[in-house]
Design a protein around this nucleic acid. Structure first.
Length: 430
RNA sequence: GGCAGGUUGCCCGAGUGGCCAAAGGGAGCUGACUGUAAAUCAGCCGCGCAAGCUACGGGAGUUCGAAUCUCUCACCUGCCA
């Protein structure tokens, strides 16, 4: 099992692999799709709307699935939603607040750079980035209504799950968001015309929007196109995947540090780790089965979590950052070895965990907890200390008035402060 | 536009004059166990070292005392038009 598959596993159906990985939630006629995929390179696309400054790990499911299909010998189009991002697709949480064009444009540029990281832009199956603003912006209202709108039937549009759900909600649904499915349908048709794109990928919540496209292509061109959705990733306990106490796990290192990113994956529950590996790892079937075996026979070794965290962090942040955060994680959670960590590694580790500068004179533990962000108020800090959850340099502190001594400083200036088992931060004394 | 009901802490939700910093549940935090997992058990869970302060949609009032009563404004829901 090498990390670099020399030959794309062409004949073995990519659909079979996706199915095994649990990556297929719904698709249009699977036999037709399988036939199309087996018949040589096809062009397919997946879209990303700039609704935030960065993609998050939920988006990674789609991106990596696109990459898998590309590796199987097909041509991906990474669509960024310069137009659709200005409109916003309807979601259950309610009507969106429209973002300004300048904001959307900036987010679009950032998201485009992210999408580019996960697809291969060289070789015979080179990817291409497309922006739906290119064909949506020039279109006038008359053309839109005559050429596109005429193909859409109200009954069909109203029956889309999210549309009817929103119509039945207290909040209702604006015409703007209602129209979203038409825009996305147009995208697919346009890509079909420009590049012969015959398959659209999306998250399962996008199913209605994907089928808008296949139907439009059938009506406008009389041709069949395909849609395939990836499932919503869930946690074993049913809570939302991809969130931590501090919020969404973003792909942007500025928004979620590589350290936090690695920790997120490392902390995956046993019950979910095998299914996550199938979704997020490019390891082969045998290797993944061996890892699954390890989880059941030696759960304490956390091999699956280690493998998952290392691979996904490498994918998103690169090998150097990953090596650094692995070292950091070991040092900060290792017991009593902090003094043996060299200064550069410690500094890097604490930087990843969140390093806070504090001026002399040395504050007490309560203030250190607050300064480091591990406690939001002095009351909370005191509570934590009383509960026995406060540690400095892996040493439990029970006295709220305790002030670390100069001799405690690692390399003359650092303190590793930890709340509970997992929340760690660094203090640098100036 | 008329009538009725509602707006409580991160969320749900009890509370109709003092015993309310506010029941109960969920979420969250800490400890024990352990494996930086899950489950379980225990404690905690507005701010403040404390005195105390701030809080029950906003504002004004009644009262010794208000989440609870009155007025007013805003928003939500139901019925009527």
């Amino acid at each position: 099992m090498s990390d670099q598959p020399a030959v794309p596993h062409l004949p073995a159906s990519v659909l079979d692999d996706l199915r095994w990985r649990g990556l297929i939630a719904q698709s249009t006629d699977e036999h037709e799709l399988a036939t199309a995929l087996a018949g040589g390179p096809i062009t397919f696309y997946g879209g990303f709307d700039p609704t935030a400054a960065s993609l998050h790990i939920g988006n990674l499911v789609l991106l990596l699935t696109m990459r898998r299909i590309q590796e199987a010998g097909h041509l991906p189009l990474g669509l960024v939603g310069g137009a659709t991002g200005l409109i916003g697709d309807p979601r259950m949480s309610g009507e969106r607040v429209l973002n300004g064009p300048d904001v959307v444009a900036e987010w679009l540029a950032r998201i485009q750079r992210q999408v580019e990281k996960y697809l291969d832009f060289s070789g015979p199956f080179a990817a291409r980035i497309v922006n739906n603003l290119d064909w949506t912006a020039p279109m006038g209202a008359i053309d839109f209504l005559r050429d596109v709108g005429k193909h859409f039937r109200m009954g069909r549009m109203l029956s889309k799950e999210i549309v009817s759900a929103r119509l039945n909600s207290d909040e209702g649904l604006s015409f703007t968001e209602f129209s979203y499915q038409i825009l996305q349908g147009m995208d697919f048709l346009e890509l079909y015309r420009r590049y012969g794109c015959v398959l659209q990928l999306g998250g399962n919540d996008q199913w209605g929007n994907l089928t808008s496209g296949t139907e439009l292509i059938r009506k406008a061109e009389g041709k069949a196109a395909h849609a395939l959705t990836t499932p919503l990733i869930t946690k074993a306990d049913g809570t939302k995947f991809g969130k931590t106490e501090s919020g969404t796990v973003w792909l942007d290192a500025e928004l979620t540090s590589p350290y936090a990113f690695y920790q997120f994956w490392f902390n995956t529950e046993d019950a979910s780790v095998d299914s996550y590996l199938k979704v997020f790892s490019f390891k082969g079937r045998e290797e993944l089965q061996a890892i699954a075996e390890a989880t059941s026979t030696r759960p304490h070794a956390r091999e699956a979590q280690r493998a998952l965290a290392a691979e996904v962090t490498t994918l998103v942040h690169g090998p150097e950052a990953t090596a650094a955060v692995i070292t950091a994680s070991g040092a900060l959670f290792g017991r009593g070895e902090l003094r043996e960590v060299d200064e550069a590694t410690l500094a890097a580790a604490l930087h990843e965990a969140g390093l806070h500068e504090v001026a002399r004179p040395m504050p007490n533990v309560v203030d250190l907890l607050r300064e480091s962000g591990l406690a939001t108020s002095s009351s909370e800090a005191r509570r934590t200390i009383a509960e026995g959850g406060a540690n400095i340099n892996n040493q439990r502190i029970g006295d709220p008035d305790h002030i670390p001594a100069v001799a405690d400083l690692l390399h003359g200036r650092y303190l590793v402060i930890r709340r509970g088992k997992r929340a760690v931060a660094g203090i640098a004394i100036r």
